[in-house]
């Protein structure tokens, strides 16, 4: 227990985090490329076209992992928010704040790919389908978080306000999701589901899983390097930051 507490506290030290993240980031990058390159191969070449949707189903290997990531990142932000509020851990608020733009990007990616996928399937770029609508609202939640935290000047206060907002959002998210689902069945009983209940074939599951693991590793990598830059920026006047700048040389 004591060792755990000591380990936990060491992560609170900016210098320790800067060193550790420098060591961990290349590993995460390596894991990302290790899953992303075969994932890309299987999604574009290695898997057969879908028997109904043809080659357009290949958009799924971007769209679905991006949509999963967007929800995963919001959950991470809420957990980091809880840690910020309970233990006042500086690192947690940095994780939440660097996650927000990444999460917003993945949400945007899910929306754009969903709409590009929808064009050949539905005939229009946008249908008020439950999945896309929830994703759009999730984008609003991400942008709201970013708008709030960037408009508060004091970093600590911004982190704590953002933490409350992320927690409120995460409580609301299932309610929003459920109500949008209910609303869409009410208004469009005959919507063509892009991903029906039908079991996904193995040949499609491989690229899907590879890509979703790749995105997870990518997120871990980017959080590490973004938090690293943020920690350095916040502490740029301190001794350890000067040493970090010095040992790199020219």
């Amino acid at each position: 227990m004591n060792r755990f507490v000591a380990w936990f506290h060491r992560w609170g030290s900016p210098k320790h985090f800067y060193d550790m993240s420098g060591r961990w980031a290349p590993w995460m990058a390596g894991l990302f490329f290790l899953t992303f390159i075969p994932g890309l191969y299987y999604s574009l070449i290695g898997s057969p076209p879908d028997y109904q949707q043809g080659e357009s189903a290949r958009i799924m290997y971007i769209h679905v992992p991006a949509a999963w990531m967007s929800m995963f990142i919001y959950a991470v932000m809420a957990i980091a928010g809880a840690v910020t509020l309970i233990w006042k851990m500086k690192l947690a608020d940095i994780v939440a704040q660097v996650s927000a733009p990444i999460g917003a990007s993945f949400t945007l990616l899910a929306l754009v790919t969903g709409s590009l996928w929808g064009k050949p399937m539905w005939g229009t770029y946008w249908v008020w389908d439950a999945r896309l609508t929830s994703e759009l609202i999730l984008l609003f939640l991400f942008l709201g978080y970013i708008a709030l935290t960037t408009s508060i000047d004091d970093k600590r206060q911004a982190a704590r306000a953002g933490a409350v907002l992320a927690l409120v959002g995460v409580v609301n998210l299932p309610i929003i999701h459920y109500s949008v689902e209910w609303w869409s069945t009410l208004h469009q009983p005959s919507t063509v589901k892009v991903m029906g209940k039908s079991a996904i074939h193995m040949s499609m599951l491989i690229p899907l899983l590879l890509m979703s693991f790749a995105f997870k590793f990518y997120y871990a990598w980017v959080v590490l390097i973004s938090a690293r830059a943020e920690v350095l920026d916040r502490d740029k006047g301190t001794r350890w930051a000067e040493e970090a700048a010095g040992e790199k040389g020219r």
């Binding site: 609202i137 609003f140 939640l141 942008l143 709201g144 708008a147 709030l148 408009s151 508060i152 206060q157 306000a161 409350v164 907002l165 409120v168 959002g169 609301n172 309610i175 929003i176 459920y178 109500s179 949008v180 209910w182 609303w183």
Partner: peptide
């Protein structure tokens, strides 16, 4: 909640609507 989060900000008005309106959606539906 949104009002409490933005009360210290000078230009809280528009920000408040960005934070709160998405959370109103279930009620609206």
């Amino acid at each position: 909640i949104g009002t409490a989060l933005t009360v210290g900000l000078r230009k809280g008005g528009v920000l408040l609507s960005l934070l709160v309106l998405p959370l109103y959606i279930p009620v609206l539906i």
